[in-house]
Nucleic acid binder design. Structure first.
Length: 828
DNA sequence: AGCACGCCGACT
DNA sequence: GTCGGCGTGCTC
């Protein structure tokens, strides 16, 4: 059993006894330190000239440096084993008033549920740049006396520093570059060639910019030149206040005109904070609420009945007008003087939904928050959200941490989407669960919207007044008919194209009717590998056990092979490295392949590509979708992101190149994912005045899930799927926890994981959980790390008793990394 | 995380 | 003998 020096922070959902965020601290303060592997609280003294409140972000001396930490608890007397002389002073308060009680409790709850140190949860919630730690920096002196007798390490460091304009590098960087760096540094410091010092990295701060403000509205023509008067009038027309740079570029005036106006006391020039927000957007066209369908009316009425916590499921088929329901419920919340959080699963859906909200509420009430914001934008947005004014935040999963003090509602659109689950850095939270906890704590309603609800949500809401259904599309538009094409028969009939005869004729029809179509590709790594047709050799990543993906040459002559796991890139070999064959080519049906094939078979159709390769640049998402919506192309070819919530009224054809990749996903969710994805993709079709048509190609046309998809029949899918889950105690009946281990040392991971497996199995009978594994991860090696995993399965209702995670952590040597993924979605 | 202290192999 | 590898322990 691991013994901790001081009492660890209890991982409980309620705050520590006596804890209340914002209360001033008397006595000593216990600080949660921002250093991984340091979980205990450290006690500090508060200097007289400093006011520290619980929840403040502090900078404190730790070891020989300054680190940031959070003031979490005040104590009146010191622990016995801690000598007064060892206590240091708090260095400074970095930020105050960021957390409210409820918010703080939420963070505790997350830390507890996901078995993650609280500090990591806080880091996930805060914008970057608030927590920071000092860095040791090495600087070359101005006039160093350098003699030749230096050691090689010292010489190398010197060279490095001399190559830098300011003669400065972080110590960490030098250590990475130079071996024996420590000795070299000592030499250089002893001879007074360099100095070292600790410096806090540049913290995120407000951006100041010169602004011009009218201070005298009365224009005395005799006093002003013509040009001065013009500029002043323009400024006045624009509300009397503008950024200097903008006013100058608008009026083409020179700065001296403003100086003169300031001199004559008509305007004042001053530095003001320029709030950085993501204002990238289209045109606003104010819209009033449209006529509601009776289903929409019913849902809104039901939602309006409560202001307390309540989880609603808004189950609406694609195109049934869920967004309008969101708009109306948010409208009510704003009128009550409260704020709203609206989450979407993907960054690509933000422009579209933001446009809808802006058209209804105007732009100043809406902020967006997602991973593509710059650090400055995030920082400013986050601070703006701390204010009490009613506002709307629209964002991806991390926006669930928006610090809005006055929450009136939380909405998750496409709530079934697995992008709501974080699986990379801990905490591996699911935004839907966090949203529910938060709504409970803030006592506000939670609305989960989907055409294909997650089974968890279905179980929780079915047969309850909180189940709100929109079974029909708006304006009584029909759901598109879905045709499943058996690709085996295509082959028998001699069609070797990747497009079935049915899809080909639909594409031809599209050409004639001037309508638009979408081709969906389910891409998952293996679909774009390069292989030898003579010997079957496949190019694999040297660091991961996966094949490399082919990428179309851009402007460069050589095509590139890239690893989707570690980003390793290499040029494509001209011939097979194994057998020298020249039949060595890109194989598979990725987006590019489909584009080529279209260009070949349907040269007159204009195609646009829409996948993560093309949309990674900022604003590219919107650009492509706008181009497509404006009819600049006939076909949009893309992956996953096409399936999610896009509203493109001109689309009358949706083609799924192959459903097989989806059907054969090797985890218990395969059927659910297939049903969701296919239903969602099909839903992109026939949303305008013209009816649509969906064609799904597969080698497995008999698959039962496809029948449910054809019938747009969620209930029949559920009826088939739930018993299967129940039988094996999979979610939503049972719960899963995935332990992942990884290490560069293969033998060591196997050994460690097996040891953990034995421990878990030994106490599994008493614990009432099931142990699956140890097994290698689906891809055993990624970035030269060997990965293993153990899955725990248990049924909450039957009572359970999970193992002691501290014991398991203790079983891992430092070279083996352990992560605990609660409710895992990805078994990669 | 860093960094110090501390114990074992190949070299001036 | 020393330099230098990286294994444990500590930081209020």
């Amino acid at each position: 059993m691991l013994e901790l020096a001081s009492p660890p922070l209890p991982l409980v959902a309620e705050p520590i006894a006596g804890y209340a965020v914002g209360t001033k601290v008397n006595g000593w303060i216990e600080v949660l330190i921002d250093i991984p592997g340091v979980q205990e609280l450290y006690t500090y003294n508060i200097p007289i000239d400093l006011t520290v409140r619980l929840g403040d972000i502090l900078s404190v001396p730790f070891s020989d440096r300054l680190v940031s930490g959070i003031a979490v608890r005040s104590i009146a007397s010191l622990p016995e084993n801690l000598d007064r002389s060892r206590i240091k002073n708090v260095d400074d308060v970095i930020a105050s008033g960021l957390f409210r009680d409820r918010y703080w409790e939420l963070l505790f709850k997350i830390a507890e549920y996901y078995h993650t140190p609280l500090i990591q949860v806080i880091k996930a919630a805060l914008p970057p740049g608030i927590l920071a730690r000092s860095q040791l920096r090495i600087r070359l002196l101005d006039t160093p006396t350098i003699d030749k007798s230096l050691g090689t390490a010292a010489k190398e460091i010197l060279q490095l520093l001399q190559s830098q304009k300011d003669g400065e590098y972080s110590w960490r960087f030098i250590q990475q570059k130079v071996r024996g760096a420590r000795r070299g540094l000592k030499e250089l410091i002893d001879r007074q060639i360099v100095v070292s010092n600790f410096a806090m990295p540049r913290l995120q701060s407000v951006k100041l910019q010169m602004a011009v403000t009218v201070i005298n509205d009365f224009i005395d023509a005799s006093e002003l030149s013509e040009r001065q008067r013009q500029v002043l009038e323009i400024l006045r027309d624009r509300g009397g206040e503008m950024w200097k740079a903008e006013l100058l570029s608008l009026t083409k005036a020179s700065a001296s005109i403003l100086d003169k106006l300031a001199e004559k006391n008509y305007v004042s020039l001053s530095m003001q904070e320029r709030i950085r927000l993501d204002r990238e957007r289209g045109i606003t066209n104010p819209q009033t609420a449209p006529q509601l369908t009776s289903d929409q009316r019913g849902a809104i009425d039901e939602l309006n009945r409560t202001d307390r916590f309540c989880q609603f499921l808004l189950h609406g088929v694609t195109g049934s007008g869920k967004t309008e329901v969101y708009l109306q419920i948010v409208d009510r919340v704003l009128r009550q003087g409260k704020s709203a959080i609206v989450l979407v699963p993907e960054i690509g859906l933000i422009p579209q939904i933001t446009d809808r909200f802006r058209d209804r509420f105007g732009e100043d009430k809406i902020c967006v928050y997602h991973s593509a914001l710059s650090d400055g934008e995030r920082y400013d947005t986050w601070r703006l959200l701390l204010s009490d004014t009613p506002q709307i935040i629209i964002g991806t999963r991390s926006a669930i941490f928006s610090p809005l003090p006055n929450l009136g509602i939380i909405i998750l659109d496409e709530e079934h989407d697995s992008s709501y689950k974080q699986d990379r850095p801990a905490p591996t939270y699911h935004a839907r669960d966090v949203a529910r906890w938060r709504a409970e704590l803030e006592a506000c309603p939670l609305v989960l919207g989907s055409a294909t609800p997650a089974l968890e949500t279905w179980i929780a809401n079915a047969n309850s007044p909180t189940y709100l259904s929109l079974p029909n599309r708006i304006e009584s538009r029909p759901l598109p008919p879905i045709e499943v094409v058996d690709m085996r028969q295509e082959l028998t009939a001699g069609n070797r194209s990747m497009f079935s005869r049915s899809l080909q004729s639909a594409l031809r029809e599209l050409q004639q009717t001037k309508k638009q179509g979408i081709l969906f590709i389910h891409r998952r790594g293996h679909s774009s590998f390069v292989s030898c047709r003579s010997c079957g050799y496949v190019v694999e990543c040297p660091h991961c056990d996966v094949s490399l993906a082919y990428h179309q040459p851009g402007t460069a002559a050589d095509s590139l092979l890239r690893c989707h796991y570690c980003n390793h890139a290499q040029p494509q070999p001209k011939k097979c490295p194994q057998c020298d064959s020249h039949y060595f080519k890109f194989f598979g049906s990725g987006t590019q392949k489909v584009m080529e094939e279209l260009a070949h078979q349907f040269p007159s159709l204009r195609c646009l590509r829409f996948d993560s390769d093309v949309t990674s640049r900022k604003g590219e998402h919107r650009r492509i979708l706008t181009a497509f919506a404006q009819g600049e192309a006939d076909i949009l070819v893309g992956t996953q992101m096409l399936a999610k919530g896009l509203d493109l009224p001109q689309v009358t054809l949706v083609g799924v190149i192959s459903a097989d990749g989806l059907l054969h996903l090797s985890d218990y969710r395969a059927a659910e994912r297939t049903f969701q994805t296919l239903t969602q993709v099909a839903g992109r079709c026939g949303r305008g005045a013209d009816a649509g048509k969906v064609i799904v190609q597969t080698y497995n046309p008999e698959h039962p899930v496809l029948n449910a998809v054809i019938g747009h029949d969620y209930r029949s899918f559920i009826a088939g799927e739930l018993p299967a889950r129940q039988l094996l105690n999979y979610p939503p009946y049972g719960k899963l926890i995935l332990l992942r281990t990884s290490s560069p040392d293969e033998k060591l991971v196997i050994e460690t994981t097996e040891k953990i497996g034995v421990y878990l199995t030994e106490r599994s009978i008493a614990g009432k959980y099931e142990v699956l594994g140890p097994a290698t991860a689906t891809v055993m090696r990624v970035s030269d790390l060997y990965r293993w995993q153990i899955l725990l399965k248990y049924v909450p209702n039957l009572g359970f008793n999970l193992p002691d995670w501290e014991v398991i952590k203790g079983m891992c040597p430092s070279a083996v990394k352990l992560t605990i993924d609660v409710d895992p979605q990805n078994f990669l």
